[in-house]
């Protein structure tokens, strides 16, 4: 057994999984409060990457002489704000008018919004992939046992961890987080407590979209190129991650994301040993989806709820 290679695969898998986890959180939180899958979420992730590109381009003159770490944080936070606003706007314009309609109506609308965003982005930014600037000087650090980790991977892992901790704080400890959980548990009771349902839903969309923006920037950092359709596959894989963890369950989404990232990377890394060509990497998530729906539809951390009549 080559432990060095395994460690290397785990590092790569966790960095990819961190990105899936951040996207999956948005799916699961929105599902929690609205019982609705926002299929446009992957495109918010894409817009996050483009926001990062343009924020960096426009603010470059101001970044002169600033430490890289600070300028990268500015790009990250501003892009998160842009996407939070976008997410809130999408909910207000597209989903809120349909809230009393059937869930299928909202679902189809979400697919429409997704197409609108990706083709809108193609119109604005062009279809050709764009290079993503190096926000932080990338170096490869050698670890013992022929293992290496890049600065970007370290940044992605540490930043994701910080975002997850902050999210946990918001959801568990703040008044808004408590209202989110209450709304998700019983919407009628929540409004009887004086919860402004619309405000909490907006907040949830904003929060989820901000995390998707962070994921978009991390993805762009690792793969260095972005295009208007980059959100489709990671978006669907993150959806699978949310289902794997138990849709509506926040810890589950994070866990599901990491697992999908790890499994995808391991299948590619050990494709010779297990006899699956590396080209099948995108199929991994979907095989997992089929298995989870067959054997544990409530997901790893989800509780199976009986639909009340």
């Amino acid at each position: 057994m080559d432990w060095g290679n395994l460690t290397q695969q785990l590092i790569n898998g966790l960095s990819l999984g961190a990105i899936y986890a951040l996207i999956a959180l948005g799916y699961t939180m929105v599902y929690g409060v609205l019982r609705f899958i926002n299929f446009a979420h992957g495109d918010v992730f894409m817009i996050g990457a483009f926001a990062g590109l343009y924020v960096h381009r426009w603010l470059k003159p101001f970044f002169h002489g600033m430490p890289e770490f600070v300028s990268a944080c500015v790009v990250l936070l501003l892009s998160m704000c842009v996407c939070a606003a976008l997410g809130i706007l999408i909910e207000k314009l597209a989903y809120k008018p349909l809230r009393q309609r059937s869930r299928l109506t909202a679902l189809i609308t979400a697919i429409g919004v997704s197409l609108l965003l990706s083709y809108g982005a193609q119109l604005l930014f062009g279809a050709a992939p764009k290079g993503f600037p190096q926000l932080i000087k990338n170096e490869t650090h050698d670890l013992p046992g022929a293992v290496s980790i890049t600065t970007e991977q370290i940044v992605v892992l540490v930043a994701t961890l910080l975002l997850l901790v902050s999210l946990r704080f918001i959801v568990q400890k703040t008044r808004m987080g408590l209202a989110m959980r209450a709304l998700s548990n019983n919407p009628t009771a929540a409004s009887l407590m004086g919860v402004n349902t619309d405000a909490v839903i907006s907040f949830t969309f904003g929060l989820g979209s901000a995390l998707a923006a962070a994921a978009g920037i991390f993805f762009a950092m690792l793969y260095q190129a972005i295009d208007p359709f980059m959100g489709i596959l990671p978006g669907i894989k993150a959806f699978v991650a949310a289902v794997l963890g138990g849709i509506g369950n926040i810890a589950g989404a994070a866990l599901g994301g990491l697992l999908i990232g790890l499994m995808e990377t391991l299948v590619v890394g050990y494709s010779k040993n297990i006899g699956i060509p590396p080209g099948f990497r995108d199929a991994v998530a979907f095989v997992i989806l089929i298995l989870i729906l067959m054997f544990k539809p409530a997901g790893l951390l989800g509780k199976s709820e009986r639909e009340k009549v």
Binding site: L178, A179, R181, A182, N185, N186, T188, A189, A190, L192, M193, V195
Partner: peptide, 14 residues
């Protein structure tokens, strides 16, 4: 209609 997966204290805070 208590919030079943929130704690008793969290329910009171709600």
């Amino acid at each position: 209609m208590v919030f079943s997966n929130l704690t008793v204290l969290e329910n009171l805070h709600m």
